[in-house]
Structures are given as C-alpha cells and as structure tokens.
C-alpha cells in the first residue's frame, strides 16, 4: 500500500469564541489518483472542510479548532499565508461552484492561466501562453486561440467552468478539490463537464476530492465516499460499499428521499424535521433528533466503527433489525 496523498485527522472548525464545532472530528484519507466524494446537505460542513484544506477559511470569524491535514507529509493546517499561496494552484488546486466569482473579471482567460504557470513554474511569457492554449484545447473549448484573449463574461457558464478546470490543471496538481463544480450547470452541460473531469483525472492520475450534494454525481465519479451530516462524517467506505450496503440511518434516509427512476409513483420515504441550528445541536449523535432508530444511548456521541465492510458512526451499526435485540 502506498502512502496517502492527503490524510485529514480529527479536523475541527468553529466560529471563534463559540463552543460547538461546525466541523467536528472529521477524518479521511485520499490516495494518489483516487477520487473521494464528500456528500451531504447544506450546512453539513463539506464546503468548510474543503476551504480549510485550501487555506481559504474566512478567519475570523471561523477558525481551525483542531486536527491535522497532512498533504505529502506537510500539515496544511499549520501553513502560513505565503506558504499556502506557493502551494495553491501548483500541487493543490481548487475548482469552485461558480466560476464567475473565482475568475478575475478584468483579466483575459489566457492571462489568468498563464499567470499561474509563470508564477509557479517560472515559465517565460511565451511558454506560459503556449501552456494556456494547450490547456484550453485539453478542456475542449471551441476556438481556443480566440478564447485565450476573451474575458470571463464573454463565456457561457459551461465554458467558464471549462476554463477554470484548465486553470486548475495547468501546473499538473497532485490533488484537486472541487466544490460542487457542476451544481450551477444544466444537466446536459453537467454531463459534459463530468466526462471531461473523469478523462483529465484519469489521464494525469490526479487525485480528486469532490464536494457534492448529489448522490447521482457521487455514483458517477467516486472511488470512495464520505457522507457528512451536521459537521461530522457519519459513514465512509468505497462507493460500492456505501451504495451497496448503506449503514447509517442518515445515509439510508437520504437515499430513500430521492425520487428513484423506475420506482414510479407513491410517497417518498422522508427524513422528518430539519438539521438543528448549531446553537441547539445535541451533544451526542447529531442526527438523533430526526432518526427513526434512536435509542437512549444516542445521547452520547457515537464513534466511527466498523459496520459491515466499511465504517459508520452509529450506535445501531451494523443496522440489522428494527428493534435492538442485545
């Protein structure tokens, strides 16, 4: 077994001066070339986790309350701003949901990509521009020579996302963190971008952390899955394990809530209520207030334990019967 490329241990994020952690005890690893999907609903902490890894947490008011994130042996959480800006866009790259807010509106597409190549590789202007063109061709932007000299607002949403992927990949990063990269796109464009990301990832052997709320996207992209709820990882395993043998009541409820093709009409089986606000978060299992399987024991926080062939943070795992028989 080779070394993990990134190993996150016990990551915790909170609002400075408050007690409860928004992200609490999150651990996962990513091997070189592997794709990990972090899936969950609004407020589950998936985006905060991604931002923390990229050194982009809005601090203050947010702060890292503990944990480690070892990337090629270096703890990302302890890096200074200067160290981070050397790393970002080079070995570590990010793709955002809304490319318009991530691209500089006043810089031509070509210049934005070339700038990052010059900066991290010390390439000449000419070489950097050649690399920018090569990247636009790679992400299959039509008429790349023309696009090179256009501004972000002249591109459609799908094309902007392609340009951002070109920029992220320009320096052959070892790891890309993509936060909902296709959420803002129409379904046919989303399929194009997922195709593209799969192809480029496989060609370059880049590892990918993909943040998404869409279990469909997870099934398309993931090797491994981490399901997050209210700041904690509640279930993790390979994609086949999590989809084939879901263990945590939240994962099962989330999958049941999705209108499935073929299942036809009838009522959807739902998760009742909603995520409690952080100020009212129960100290034990954070899903307990909505969970149909809860026990008195759920007032203590459940550790991530072996459940079936993977891991779940549930006192009832492995979940085999309606009633507790122990």
């Amino acid at each position: 077994m080779s070394q993990p490329l990134l190993e996150v241990q016990d990551l915790a994020i909170r609002i400075r001066g408050t007690g409860r952690n928004l992200v609490d005890g999150v651990s996962f690893g990513v091997m070189p070339g592997e794709t990990l999907c972090i899936v969950g609903e609004s407020g589950c902490g998936k985006s905060l986790t991604a931002l923390a890894l990229m050194g982009l947490l809005a601090s203050p008011p947010l702060e890292i309350a503990g944990g480690k994130a070892l990337f090629q042996g270096q703890d990302l959480l302890g890096l200074t701003r200067a160290q981070f800006s050397r790393l970002r866009g080079d070995r570590l790259a990010m793709i955002f949901q809304e490319p318009m807010s991530a691209l500089n509106p006043a810089l031509r597409i070509g210049e934005q990509i070339a700038e990052s190549v010059r900066r991290h590789r010390g390439a000449s202007h000419r070489a950097a521009r050649a690399r920018a063109l090569e990247m636009l061709e790679k992400v299959r932007i039509p008429a790349p020579e023309t696009r090179l000299d256009e501004f972000p607002h002249q591109l459609s949403g799908g094309m902007r996302q392609r340009a951002m992927i070109a920029m992220a990949l320009a320096n052959d990063p070892a790891l890309i963190v993509a936060d909902e990269p296709t959420t803002a796109l129409d379904v046919t464009i989303q399929a194009q971008i997922l195709d593209l990301m799969r192809r480029l990832r496989d060609e370059a052997g880049t590892a990918l952390i993909m943040i998404t709320h869409d279990l469909g996207v997870v099934a398309e992209m993931a090797d491994k899955v981490a399901v997050m709820y209210a700041g904690r990882v509640v279930e993790t395993g390979t994609m086949a394990q999590v989809f084939g043998d879901p263990q945590h009541p939240y994962t099962i409820g989330l999958m049941s809530s999705m209108p499935a093709f073929g299942a036809g009409a009838g009522r959807l089986v739902t998760i009742p209520g909603m995520v409690p606000p952080i100020s009212a978060m129960p100290p034990g299992c954070r899903f307990a207030s909505r969970c149909p399987f809860r026990l008195p024991r759920c007032e203590a926080p459940p550790p991530l334990v072996q459940a079936g062939d993977h891991q779940a943070a549930c006192w009832r795992a492995p979940l085999d019967a309606l009633e507790v028989t122990a």
């Binding site: 046919t188 989303q190 399929a191 195709d195 469909g216 996207v217 099934a219 994609m239 989809f243 999705m258």
Partner: peptide
C-alpha cells in the same frame, strides 16, 4: 434522449451519464 441520458443516476451499477449532445444552447 439527450436530457434523459445526461442524468447522473444514484446507483453505481447503472449506466454512466452520457453527454449525447455537444455544444450549448
């Protein structure tokens, strides 16, 4: 057909979402 085939299905055993149409609106 293009719309239907582009839907990512939440099932790893299912077919992959395919971009059957190139280009944009």
């Amino acid at each position: 057909e293009a719309l239907v085939s582009a839907i990512p299905l939440p099932d790893p055993g299912a077919r992959r979402a395919r971009a059957r149409v190139a280009g944009e609106l």
